[in-house]
Structure formats: structure tokens, C-alpha cells
Design a protein around this nucleic acid. Structure first.
Lengths: 207, 207
DNA sequence: GTCTATACTGAGATAGAC
DNA sequence: GTCTATCTCAGTATAGAC
């Protein structure tokens, strides 16, 4: 059948989103999809390549939107520095939208993060977009030394990745009684937090 | 031999630090340690329990120091709020020290993070310490609504975890030419970044 | 109590028939 | 393109020697 590939993709997306990548065996996927085990390796090469296809068909649209928003900001600024908050909003809004429209996407990215697969996924599918935003932030924060800016971007990526998936790291004792806030709210809070962190004064040198 | 257990622990620490947890098979560990496969399950129960022992013997001292520093800060403050930066420094200094004395510890924690094992490790070995620091930060940031403070702590943990391991997430194109900064420097920058983020004004409500 | 040898189950990958 | 059969390697469990 020609849609064996599609059936594998759809089933894998659902199962990996629900159970995680490592916990979802190819044998489980092919059983639910009603196809043969070897079909996975025939169509995708390996379990990891199957995952790449899953991410790709979700991430492409988000990154396009991000770049379009950044293009518009740079056009409006006409060479001047863009405020940090605006750059960050251009980066987070498309993800927020995608997350609201299709929770499965956020779920999948959260799983990737939780299993330590995000660095690989990021460098494969988000690298060009990241470079553009890094350059924009460099212009927005001209007083910050290069090396410290680089570190702060690392911190930013860490906070962002962690925020995407509802984590159980912070002990239950300190979780507010009104439950976990929704995704859009978390993203708004994240932008404010990151703006504060990125705009902090440069760290004084120690002797 | 009585030190079979020690040999397993030492070899596992080295191999897992170098290659990661998932990539290091028990068979590889026992081959290098020169012991039998079943000795692992005899002494530790499972691969995961072996990892727990590794973390435990490294983390206990760090957490004790952290709590001692926080105790002193609270004593000095005599009931008043402690500045955010001081609380963070009390949290990070012991890790910095441990990292400088014994790079293997940081390496191991970085691996845990990279493989998505950190949440489990944290809730097992760092939970009591975290609770104390969360309470202190709550008093240091009285104007911040509870829910947003909680989210910011999540962001903080994300940034911190990510910073501990030299990650390859940010594209090589933007890495400064002078290479990766040392661990102590990164921690100092992290404290400044987090202080800025935690002290940002509360996010305005949207209708 | 410790340790060895060996067997068991389930994973991903692959060669070759159709 | 698809499927069967098989391979290698993982973590785990058990039986029994010292």
C-alpha cells in the first residue's frame, strides 16, 4: 500500500507523544499501524530518522512564521536596534500559536526535551532560524560583551526548553494550588523573564 | 573481593561521564572493571540504582553546604527579606566549588541533563534543598504573584540545568572565537542573568 | 554473603525471498 | 515495496560454586 508510510508517521506521532520516544518500540508502532516491522526501516532507515520526519513536518511552518515576523521588525526598525522584548515575542508567538492550534506538537517537543533529544533536533531543524535571532539580539544588546551574550543565549535556550514541557522538577510542595498555568500564559511569563535576564547589566569582572 | 562494589562505581562514573548513561552498557562497565555481570545486579539491583548511588555520593556534600550558607544568610537577615542575588549565590557557590575541585561531578550532571534523567535525579537527591531555597526566594520576591514565581523558578531550573553541560544547541557559527568560558565564569554570569529575570516586574494581565 | 556462569526476554537492524 | 526469518546486543533473573 502507498500509505504505509503515512500510517507509520501518524501512529508514531501519537504513541511517541503519549509515551515518549525511548518507551515507544517500533514493534508497538507497527502493531497499531497494522504494517510490517521491516517497513519502518525501509521507509525511514532507522527509528531516529522516523523521528526526524515527525519533527520536520511540524517545525517547518513555525520557523517560517518566526522569520517573517523578524523580517518585519527589522524593516520597521530601519537599521536601528530592536527592543529585546520584541525580538523574543517574534520568536515565541509562532510557537504559542502552533501550540494552541495543535497541542500534539508541543507535546512532542516536550517529550524530546525530557529525553535529552532536543539538542540534536534543534541543530537539525532550528539552526538557521536560531542564527538569525542571535544576530538580531546581538544588535539589541550592544553593551554586552560577546562571550557573556553567548552564555545568556544558552541560559535562554535552557529556560525555554524546560518551559515547553510541564516538568516535575520543582517539588509538588511548592506548586501553586490553582494548578499548572496554560501554555500561552507560560510563554508570556517566559518572555518577561528572559527580557529581564538578557537586559541585566554585564557581570563585573573579578580579579 | 570486598571492593568489587567500589570498582564498579569508579568505572561506571568514568564511563558514564565520558559516554553518557544510555550509551554505557553494563557489559562494558564490568569488562573494564574486571568483574562479573551479575555482580552489578547483586550489589545495586539495577542499572538505574547504580546511577543513583553515583549521584548520591557526589551530591550530598554540595547540598549540605548550600543549606549551611542559606542558614547563615537567614540568620544575618533576622527575618527580613534576603536579596535575590545572595540567595542564588548561596545556591551556586557550592556547585561551583565542587565543579572546580572535581570536574567529573559536573560532567556527570551534564550527562544526566543531556539524557533527560535530571528531573528524576533532582526529585530524588535535591528536593529538600530546593524546597528551602524556593521558600527563601518567595520571601525575597513578595510582589510577584505565586503562580508567576513558580513559573520563573521553572525557567531558572531550565537555564541552570542547561548551563551545567556545555551544550551544542547554539550553532557553532555564533560561538565566540575565544572558546567556551570556564565553569566558574559561567556560573557567575548565570547568577546575574537569573537575578535579572527573577526581579523583572510582574507580567501585566491581558484581558 | 559474594561471586560466576548462563539463560531469558525484548529491543533495533538486516538479508534475501517474493 | 513488502514480508519472513534471523542477527546482535541490551538489561535482567536464576542456579549454584565458593
Amino acid at each position: 500500500m502507498i500509505d504505509t508510510k503515512q500510517k507509520i508517521l501518524d501512529t508514531a506521532e501519537r504513541l511517541i507523544g503519549d509515551q515518549g520516544y525511548a518507551a515507544t518500540s517500533l514493534r508497538h508502532i507497527i502493531a497499531e499501524a497494522g504494517v510490517n516491522l521491516a517497513a519502518v526501516n525501509y521507509h525511514f532507515g532507522s527509528k531516529e530518522d522516523l523521528l526526524d520526519e515527525l519533527i520536520l513536518r511540524k517545525a517547518a511552518g513555525v520557523n517560517q512564521e518566526r522569520l517573517a515576523l523578524l523580517d518585519r521588525l527589522e524593516e520597521e526598525a530601519a537599521g536601528a536596534a530592536i527592543p529585546v522584548g520584541k525580538v523574543l515575542t517574534a520568536f515565541f508567538d509562532p510557537m504559542m500559536e502552533a501550540g494552541s492550534r495543535n497541542p500534539q506538537f508541543v507535546k512532542l517537543m516536550g517529550r524530546m526535551y525530557a529525553e535529552g533529544l532536543l539538542p540534536g533536533v534543534v541543530s537539525k531543524h532550528f539552526q538557521p532560524t536560531l542564527i538569525r535571532f542571535v544576530q538580531a539580539l546581538r544588535r539589541s544588546l550592544p553593551t554586552l560583551p560577546e562571550a557573556e551574550l553567548f552564555s545568556r543565549l544558552q541560559f535562554m535556550i535552557g529556560a525555554m526548553s524546560h518551559a515547553v514541557c510541564a516538568s516535575r522538577t520543582v517539588p509538588a510542595a511548592v506548586i501553586p494550588a490553582d494548578g499548572v498555568p496554560d501554555f500561552r500564559q507560560t510563554m508570556r511569563w517566559l518572555v518577561v523573564f528572559l527580557t529581564g535576564g538578557l537586559q541585566a547589566p554585564p557581570t563585573p569582572e573579578v580579579p
